[in-house]
Design a protein around this nucleic acid. Structure first.
Lengths: 238, 238
DNA sequence: CGTCAGCTTGATTACTTTCAATTGTTGTGG
DNA sequence: CCACAACAATTGAAAGTAATCAAGCTGACG
């Protein structure tokens, strides 16, 4: 039988162990202000935290779990835009530009999410210039990544893009204690949606990378055994 | 003989007729502060305003002309990321994140550019929360656009991407007085670099769009005669 | 008016998707 | 614990799309 929601106690923001580049410039008082007005929410695996087209009313802070942000193309094909792990902030772009969400955030594992009122967030932006500079720099980084991702998808072969996708997963979620196996379980189809290709092509590309001894495959687990080689593969001309 | 640099008088920022969503939240005093410390620069067609890898020291404001921002892939293939016209601000992303430029800006026509000292820019960000919110919202919009562009490139056919590219040119540079001909001259190869394809495929796609009577071609000029049809073509499934 | 760069076209090749069929895995209920 | 259903992974073959290669063509400019 399906595992039920585990009862987890979410600590106050000041006591949160998650590293967080977003709120690091806030004072204890400001953190308290967020903490006392936040509410926690549990999202079961495969449920949506927010949905494309809906209006943003809150800022989400991922306390535990893993989340993918994706967009659905006209033909129903999904494109994964970005991943989030514990400590990451979601949904601030739409909040800031006061537009509907342009993408959907889905919990890839059971996740606990802290939700912070929009007003609270804007209040701090207005009052704390250091914080808004922080937000600006985060946006700048995401913009740079997005533009690089564009080049990758448009100029690399499927194998290169799959290599790139594996490196992204490694950078985002890291390894299991063996320091080789990626700490994330995804279907082949989801990996395809990162690289912007099909399930079948993904399978064939993974098989190639395995033959080249850059990765090891065992069911859904993927281990990177030759990181340098994988980087080379991601940047190869052909 | 090649036309020489025309002598143009660049007015003070307060008297600049270019519409500008970037500085609109500044007071007259703040504008003056920028204006008195700026310096103007002329860039001949096809010269670089800034170059990938170099460090950002200034903010650029395009007074006149047209600029393309592009990145070179490993194999030397260029990908155009964005366009700028008079009134637009360039180079703020790298300035803000304090990283080297991740792309190169090239004048597509002879262009006059006002250059604003980095320190001045940061000073205003710190002192004017309304301005920084403005910057944040601009970045948010560019991020959204970049993510949409990713979906476009990864999921659409060459014809769809070329249609998308033409719509982008129309939205950025608009029409000549005839309200049909795009107010921009580009080579086929440059159009290919927007859509992430080759010159030959671009020519064939343009020919198709012409056969479908969505556009008219005459040398380098491109006229959109069926805008709705072109939008449909950009969003078509096949 | 010759040259060169950009444009165009056709043919070939390479890569990726699509389709179809099979096998493997997982969760569920008897 | 087994059997089944549903989903995921895999493989092979065929079809489609776009890139590449190889000529010509055209038009602008010195």
């Amino acid at each position: 039988m399906k595992k039920e929601k585990e009862e987890i106690i979410v600590p106050s923001c000041n006591n949160c162990n998650n590293s967080n580049v977003f709120f690091c410039s806030l004072s204890c008082e400001e953190m308290d202000m967020i903490s006392t007005t936040k509410r926690e929410n549990f999202f079961k695996k495969d449920t949506a935290i927010f949905t494309e087209g809906h209006y943003a009313k809150e800022l989400f802070c991922l306390f535990s779990g893993k989340v993918k942000l994706s967009k659905i193309g006209k033909d129903g094909k999904e494109q994964i835009i970005r991943f989030y792990k514990n400590g990451n902030i979601l949904g601030y772009r739409s909040l800031l530009s006061n537009e509907p969400y342009h993408a959907t955030a889905i919990a890839m594992e059971d996740s606990y999410v802290c939700m912070i009122k929009k007003e609270r967030f804007f209040q701090i932006i207005k009052e704390n210039p250091k914080f808004s500079l922080n937000v600006i720099q985060l946006l700048s980084k995401e913009l740079k990544d997005a533009e690089q991702h564009l080049i990758d998808v448009s100029q690399k072969t499927v194998k290169g893009r799959i290599s790139e996708a594996l490196l992204l997963l490694m950078n985002t979620f890291g390894y299991l204690p063996d320091e080789e196996t990626l700490d994330i379980k995804m279907t082949r189809s989801e990996i395809a949606d990162i690289a912007g290709t099909t399930t079948e092509s993904t399978i064939r590309a993974l098989a190639q990378l395995k033959d080249e001894r850059l990765i090891r495959l065992d069911g859904k687990s993927i281990a990177i055994c030759d990181l340098k080689g994988l980087i080379r593969s991601a940047n190869a001309f052909d």
